[in-house]
Simulated assay, not measured.
Amino acid sequence: MNTLAQKIIDAHGGLETWQRFSSLTAHLKQGGALWALKGHAGTLDETNVTVGLGDEWASHHPFGTDGKVSRFQPGKIEIQDGTGQPIDTLADPRASFAGHTLETPWTEPQLAYFAGIAMWTYLNMPFLLAKPGVVCEQLEDWSENGETWQRLRVTFPQDIATHSTVQTLYVDQDGLLKRHDYDVEIAGGTSGAHYVSGYIDVQGLKFPTERRIFPRLPDGTSLSEPLVVSIDLSNFALHI
């Protein structure tokens, strides 16, 4: 494994500890401009999210009103009612975003797809670096706000559904994530700079509790506004 990738994984608790668990649940509060722009203001302002660790799936519960629940898998989205009965489905969901721009509204299943790939990626990072087919390359260091961060370019294989094929991680001297860059392919390749902070220890693994996503410029710098998405996480629980 790439030396920097190994350092990052170890700093977050180590691959052996992560592999003891099959899923993670957390309480989720979200804000930012994206949700209203996509036609879903309030739907996921406060909810719970469960993601598979390793296996790619995620669920938001509740998903909006009436006790609905989402179920994301790369090849299928399902929205269920409060009794677990499917009320909306979308097969081959990524193909449904063809031609989308940042301003294109989403259907509920499309919202569930975006939220699913986002939270699965975020909560499995950095342990995704150890998955088969993931390629890592260390880049030149980056200076921001008086700090120097190491950078890792990550290229994902086609069988992992995530924001973009190529992403960049920024880490401090201890190997903890500070920033995560990607281009949201399903929203016209919109570029984001995703800052993480507020680390806590959860059953031997380290997770950030605060995430703030801002626009990213071509030179790699980020804008301080608008706030595209804010994510605050609490009540983490790992499940065997």
Rank of each mutant, 00 (worst) to 15 (best):
T104C: 04
P109N: 04
G99D: 02
E103R: 10
S96W: 09
P93T: 02
A91D: 15
A98N: 03
E103L: 05
P93N: 06
P105A: 08
Q85Y: 11
Q80I: 15
G82N: 15
A112M: 05
E108D: 11
E103D: 11
D92Q: 13
E108C: 03
P93K: 04
T101V: 06
R94Y: 02
H100F: 10
A91N: 14
G84Y: 13
T101R: 12
P86G: 06
E108P: 02
A95D: 15
P93A: 05
G84M: 13
Y113I: 04
Q85E: 13
W106E: 01
P109I: 03
P105K: 08
L90F: 12
T101L: 10
Y113M: 08
L111V: 09
A95S: 14
P86W: 11
L90A: 05
A95T: 15
L111C: 07
P93D: 04
G82S: 15
P93V: 04
D88S: 14
Y113D: 08
A98Q: 07
W106L: 02
L90N: 04
G99R: 01
R94A: 12
A98E: 02
A91H: 14
Q80T: 15
T107N: 08
S96Y: 10
D88R: 12
I87L: 07
T83E: 15
L111Y: 05
F97V: 10
L102N: 09
F97P: 07
G84W: 13
I87M: 10
A112F: 04
H100S: 04
T89F: 00
G99N: 03
P109Q: 04
T104R: 01
A112N: 06
D92I: 06
P93H: 05
G82Y: 14
H100M: 00
T101K: 11
G82C: 15
P105Y: 03
D88A: 14
T107F: 00
Q110T: 11
L111Q: 07
R94I: 12
P93S: 02
R94H: 11
G84N: 13
W106N: 00
P86C: 06
H100A: 06
F97S: 07
F97C: 08
P109T: 04
P109C: 03
Y113Q: 04
A91C: 11
Q110M: 10
P93W: 08
D92H: 14
T104S: 05
D81A: 12
A112L: 06
A95F: 07
T83I: 09
D81C: 12
L90V: 09
P105C: 11
Y113N: 06
E108Q: 08
D81G: 12
F97W: 07
Y113R: 02
L90R: 05
H100C: 06
T107I: 08
T89N: 00
W106R: 00
A112V: 10
A91L: 14
E108S: 10
T104L: 07
P105W: 01
E103Q: 09
R94E: 08
R94P: 08
D92S: 13
W106V: 01
D88N: 14
